[in-house]
Write a protein that binds this DNA or RNA. Structure first.
Length: 502
RNA sequence: UCCCCGAUAGCUCAAUCGGUAGAGCACCCGGCUGUUAACCGGGUUGUUGUAGGUUCGAGUCCUACUCGGGGAGCCA
């Protein structure tokens, strides 16, 4: 009777006979030798079945197994560098749990829509498997950091009576005949709890009805929001910096294999060490207006254009070569693949050629007083190889609860953290306005009803202190750490504009 | 709300100027004892997103709509 084992622990069973229970990921056969690539949730293992008189029946059965058939494979473990994972199984028995036929996600290329429509199956693919394991570690890192630093977890409500900020971006829900909204932040609630526990955080899903169809947006995403008492903006920045460094280093430590599977450039993550860069909003505005940025974007545009021309020619050449008479079939296949890759890149580069002139204009015409746009953030982040804090925005483009700057009343003590490599804003936060009268003034300025915020104003009436906090978006952070092009792969079931299935 | 792009076999994509819709993969049969999205030979595969229009003739041109992708605004 063979002992059962999981693939991730095979190195401890070399020379032993074990049983793996999992699913058939892929199989290849060459006459009298068959390779069954099995996954069991902990990894992949190549199982080798030799056709002998004794295994002839087994061989025939295994040959007919469809992709993702569930099975138990028994065999002897041996180390072999040719197997994914480094160990393989010399098969002595295969027990079929279910022979699955027609699994739709083949080892070949598929489009995004096809895969998103089959998200419930896509999880099984290696790349998705790796991403969700990194997500797990990011989430664990978040909890670990705050729990180990004396923060108390406060769960904030998902049904919220009114807007925290702009009401236009909220999902309305019928609550026994009353309109309520799905929370887009727990911040105000967490501030109240902070006055009781000094250091607190909330962590959960949050909802935004923004009609944004971009690679950075979800309508339902996870956010962690710490809040600390007796703190000014510098204390909040120091916390954010220490926290982000911790999460990145934990992933590098515990998910190196997965990050490598994703092809992540680990050197870029290794560089994420304190201190991060700091810019004020006014400095960022100056940078956007600078000739340096203009030249950089023009160079980008020229490069993208050159690349488009290059790729167009490359595709035409390869296409001609592929369809020419007398081309070997394997060569034609290889060319077809190269053409496909080139087309993907061409689409991206054409997009860039289309967008960059607009981005140049946005940067050049940037006016002090308006918020930084997505493309502006990308420009600022691209000039730095580590995360960048942008601080002290004009108060007109920020929420009412942000602390007015003592030296310059036009600005507030807020902070955004921009991830490098164009991943955009992963943190937004601020020191909070602790002065009751200034807060009342700001409510009025923003046209908000004082009555809706009575309980919040109590926090300024009874023992107000300087305090602050921030929110970190989990999915954007995971996309950055994994080096993904799109945020939709960082959450098990993405909720986006126009996607609510499965 | 606005701008750009797309929809052809189960999947990924071709189809020149408007002229008989095609390839690879998947699947089935056969071959192959070290494969790595294995490979080689043979076979099966279509309401060209929907509705209308132009034309002798539309996958191709025009209009509207639906769905999807990317971007602006907004934002984590």
């Amino acid at each position: 009777m063979a002992t059962s084992a999981t693939i991730c622990e095979l190195s401890q069973h070399v020379g032993q006979t074990v049983t793996l229970r999992g699913w058939l990921y892929n199989s290849r056969s060459s006459g009298k030798l068959m390779f069954l690539v099995v996954r069991d949730g902990t990894g992949l293992c190549q199982c080798v079945l030799e056709k002998t008189d004794a295994t002839a029946g087994l061989f025939e059965t295994a040959r007919r197994l469809g992709q993702e058939s569930s099975l138990a494979v028994t065999g002897t473990v041996r180390a072999d560098p040719r197997s994914p994972g480094g160990h393989e199984l010399a098969v002595s028995d295969v027990v079929i749990v279910q022979n699955a036929a027609g699994y739709p996600i083949t080892p070949k290329a598929h489009g995004v829509e096809f895969l998103m429509q089959r998200r419930h199956l896509w999880f099984r693919s290696q790349r998705q498997w790796a991403i969700l394991r990194v997500r797990h570690t990011v989430v664990e890192g978040i909890r670990q950091y705050f729990n180990e630093h004396g923060f108390i977890l406060i769960d904030t409500p998902i049904f919220a009576p009114a807007a925290g900020e702009g009401a236009q971006t909220l999902f309305a829900v019928d609550y026994f005949g009353e309109p309520v909204y799905l929370a887009q932040t727990g911040q105000l609630y967490v501030e109240a709890a902070m006055m009781a526990h000094r250091k607190v955080y909330c962590f959960g899903p949050t909802f935004r009805a923004e009609k944004s169809k971009t690679r950075r947006h979800l309508t339902e995403f996870w956010m962690v929001e710490p809040e600390i008492a007796y703190a000014d903006i510098d204390d909040v920045i120091a916390l954010a910096e220490d926290f982000v460094e911790f999460v990145v280093r934990k992933c590098l430590r515990e998910r190196r294999t997965e990050l490598e599977m994703l092809g992540r450039d680990l050197a870029k993550l290794e560089a994420v060490r304190k201190p991060f860069y700091r810019l004020t909003y006014s400095q960022a505005a100056e940078i956007l207006h600078s000739d340096r940025v203009r030249q950089m974007l023009i160079a980008d545009l020229e490069q993208a254009k050159a690349r488009v021309a290059e790729l167009t020619k490359l595709i035409a050449d390869k296409e001609a070569e592929r369809t020419a008479a007398g081309v070997k079939e394997w060569k034609a296949d290889k060319l077809a693949q190269e053409i496909m890759d080139a087309r993907d890149e061409l689409a991206d580069q054409e997009e860039a050629v289309h967008n960059i002139p607009h981005h140049i204009e946005l940067a050049a015409n940037f006016e002090w007083g308006s918020d930084l746009g997505g493309s502006d953030e990308t420009i600022i982040a691209r000039l730095h190889e580590k995360p960048v804090f942008v601080t002290h925005y004009p108060r007109a483009c920020k929420a009412f609860y942000m602390k007015r700057n003592a030296d310059d009343p036009r600005i507030v003590n807020n902070l955004d953290l921009l991830a490098p490599e164009g991943y955009g804003e992963i943190i937004g936060g601020s020191q909070r306005e602790d002065d009751l009268n200034v807060l009342l003034e700001r409510l009025k300025e923003d046209g908000l009803k004082e009555a809706d915020y009575e309980w919040y104003l109590d926090l300024r009436r009874y023992g107000t202190v300087p305090h602050g906090g921030f929110g970190l978006g989990v999915e954007r952070t995971v996309a950055w750490i994994c080096g993904l092009k799109h945020i939709r792969e960082t959450i098990p079931y993405a909720r986006m504009m126009g996607r609510i299935y499965p």
